[in-house]
């Protein structure tokens, strides 16, 4: 068979093509939704990674200091493999400024939302710098009914692209580290809420506790959702 014959035959094979039934607008809407969903998932996944990393590192520090030490989420961005480079949209000074503002607002807001807390301390969180996401994070610890708890607050400023999804996503993820930690079960239980805000940022607020005691799940979800939607706690 000659190459020209093959060319002609292939052209002829598609000559009687039926009308295109594909709705391009629908495809674009679907693509936007999938993109938004996956970005939000990556964002919340990043926050979860930060929490788990903090839980593993934190208690080691706590043991060394002889008490329950809040997980500090130290160090740079989590080491999640990503081939895409991080594209910072803010200078480090701007990020530091916003992080400081969040740190200043967080204890007051936590005290206002969670009744009966005392001895609040806020520590640096870890910015989940994944791909082209930009975010800030802070970790607040406090005492409630004699026990120590922590709230980790993350704002990813460009978490979603599709604004039609705004405010639609409230996810509660109760988690428990399987097997706990060797010699230390501190901060083993995590319960978090993700909220997509109208400004397209994604907020993840997580409650960390040593055991399942403390406030009931409904109350926790209420606290976390309230904090996640608190306009004063923002990027």
């Amino acid at each position: 068979m000659l190459e020209t014959e093959l060319r002609d035959s292939l052209r002829t094979a598609v000559a009687t093509e039926p009308a295109l039934t594909l709705d391009i607008d629908e495809v674009v809407v679907r693509a936007r939704k999938e993109t938004a969903r996956s970005r939000a998932l990556v964002a919340t996944g990043a926050a979860t990674f930060v929490l788990v990393g903090g839980i593993v590192v934190g208690p080691t520090v706590a043991r060394a200091t002889g008490g329950m030490q809040p997980a500090g989420f130290p160090g740079p961005a989590p080491a999640i493999t990503s081939s895409a480079p991080i594209v910072p949209k803010y200078s480090s000074a701007q990020l530091a400024e916003r992080s400081t503002a969040l740190a200043a607002a967080l204890p007051t807001r936590v005290a206002a939302v969670v009744p009966g807390v005392s001895d609040l301390q806020t520590h640096p969180g870890s910015t989940p710098g994944l791909r082209d996401f930009v975010g800030i994070a802070r970790f607040t610890t406090f005492t409630l009914d004699g026990a120590r708890y922590g709230i980790h607050f993350t704002v990813i400023t460009n978490g979603v692209e599709d604004l039609s999804e705004k405010g639609a996503c409230v996810v509660v993820r109760p988690e428990c580290l399987p097997g706990g930690l060797v010699g230390d079960a501190s901060m083993r239980h995590v319960r978090s809420v993700d909220v997509v805000r109208p400004d397209s940022s994604v907020v993840t607020v997580a409650w960390l506790a040593a055991d399942t005691g403390g406030p009931p799940a409904e109350a926790l979800d209420g606290y976390l959702t309230q904090l996640a939607n608190d306009p004063t706690l923002r990027f």
Binding site: S9, L10, A13
Partner: peptide, 8 residues
């Protein structure tokens, strides 16, 4: 028309 595509 189709034999080449069928073969392909």
């Amino acid at each position: 028309r189709d034999v080449v595509h069928k073969a392909l």
